[in-house]
């Protein structure tokens, strides 16, 4: 699953630490999400989308062939 997290974060002028604080997750989680190494839970995906005031599908792009991790 791809996402636009890095792009959205940068347009808001936020550091990874600041976004992590806002979402109550670790900075490493933000880093892993941005690198595409980690796919979030539905709760976190919605939390992120809500934080950026966007629909979840505008932040996360589902791809059929993506692995399940």
């Amino acid at each position: 699953m791809k996402n636009r997290l890095a792009e959205l974060r940068k347009t808001r002028g936020l550091k990874q630490e600041e976004l992590a604080d806002q979402l109550a997750v670790s900075r490493q989680t933000i880093g892993s999400l941005e690198n595409g190494r980690y796919n979030p839970s539905i709760q976190l995906a919605f939390k992120i989308a809500r934080y950026f005031s966007l629909p979840v599908e505008d932040v996360f792009i589902y791809e059929e062939e993506a692995n399940d991790d």
Partner: peptide
Amino acid sequence: AIEENDERNIR
């Protein structure tokens, strides 16, 4: 608390 409850850390 964040580190403890972080979903990636739990995973």
